[in-house]
């Protein structure tokens, strides 16, 4: 017996199609090649990847929360918090720490991210508070803790941390390795029962609840997953900046939302993909790149950038309605 499930129709929610994000990435890559002949050289690709990677990772994390029908406006602050925790603890290790000690610090960073995510998860999933407001409030607290741990940007850390990231492992550099791992993790998550349930919760929460899904646990878990991605984002940023900054994460909050929407995930939840969010993040980075190499006068850059992003956001959703 086959059951004809109207898959597409059930998910008839406004979202940008994936092909649009992909074509725009190709378009802006071509523009980059035209403006910057060295764009395709391994060195420039590698450096662009390092620049884009943090937003790509945090956007993937944001995707899981949005797929569940919520949003996380604390992610930027959480990235800052993990960043200062990591810098402070690495600094305490001295100039030449063992790998085990560094691994312990990174494990702690993951725990901090997961704990922050759990806080959001409790607020939204257990206490059923409105996501926009409660995660923003939680973000203010995270930012406060980050400032408490490290009032000013700075700090130095064992050089081995950044060196390892820049070194080649199995023939690829750290950033490339992270990119491949990111894709692998997205694939693995998409194979889990959690992911299927998450889509169900995001597309129709009352129905998911009534069919007996553990709605509360799924929502909490989606925030914890996002928190873990915030930790990884902070680690990757630290590998290229080598310093702590209690305010560095701010741009990631709304940046990640933009990337997720550009990448074809519906803000109402239930439909979309983490790979799309990665494309969305790359697109945002490429737009910056093109504007920089187009040598547009500084005063025009923001308005052109804003217009392109608005057009892409709005255009994507309009295209999906045709």
């Amino acid at each position: 017996m086959t059951v004809d499930v109207p898959r597409r129709r059930a998910l008839n929610v406004p979202r940008s199609p994936l092909w649009l994000a992909a074509s725009l990435v190709v378009l802006f890559s071509l523009a980059s090649v035209a403006l910057q002949p060295t764009f395709l050289s391994p060195r420039v690709l590698q450096s662009n990847l390092s620049t884009f990677l943090p937003l790509m990772i945090i956007a993937v994390g944001q995707t899981y929360v949005i797929l569940g029908g919520a949003i996380d406006l604390s992610l930027g602050a959480l990235v800052s918090l993990v960043n200062v925790v990591l810098v402070t603890s690495l600094q305490a290790l001295g100039a030449d720490p063992s790998f085990a000690a560094i691994a312990a610090c990174m494990g702690m960073a993951l725990l901090v991210g997961a704990a922050g995510g759990a806080v959001n998860g409790v607020l939204v999933g257990v206490l059923r508070l409105q996501p926009i407001v409660s995660t923003f409030a939680a973000g203010i607290v995270f930012g406060g803790i980050a400032l408490w741990i490290m009032p000013q940007a700075g700090g130095s850390m064992p050089p081995v941390y950044a060196k390892t990231y820049a070194a080649k492992l199995f023939g690829v550099k750290g950033a490339t390795f992270m990119l491949l791992s990111l894709v692998a993790i997205i694939y693995l998550i998409s194979r889990t029962r959690f992911y299927i349930y998450l889509l169900a919760v995001g597309s129709n929460r009352p129905a998911a609840f009534q069919s007996g899904l553990p709605v509360m646990r799924i929502r909490v878990l989606s925030y914890i997953v996002a928190g873990l991605f915030a930790s990884v984002t902070a680690m990757v940023i630290l590998a290229s900046t080598s310093a702590g900054d209690p305010l560095m994460g701010q741009a990631f909050t709304l940046g990640s939302v933009s990337a997720v929407v550009l990448g074809g995930t519906a803000l109402s939840g239930g439909a979309g993909s983490a790979i799309g969010s990665m494309l969305g993040a790359v697109l945002l980075g490429l737009i910056n790149n093109v504007l920089f190499f187009a040598q547009l006068p500084f005063v025009y850059q923001t308005i052109v950038q804003g217009t392109i992003i608005l057009a892409a956001l709005a255009g994507g959703i309009m295209v999906s309605r045709r």
């Binding site: 406004p14 949003i71 709304l254 308005i303 992003i309």
Partner: peptide
Amino acid sequence: RLRIPALVMTLGSTGVITGILILMTNG
């Protein structure tokens, strides 16, 4: 009319208005 989610639309227009502000004031 275009049925763009309000969060997305107003986030996008913020970017454009900020651009206009920078253009008008030179920062």
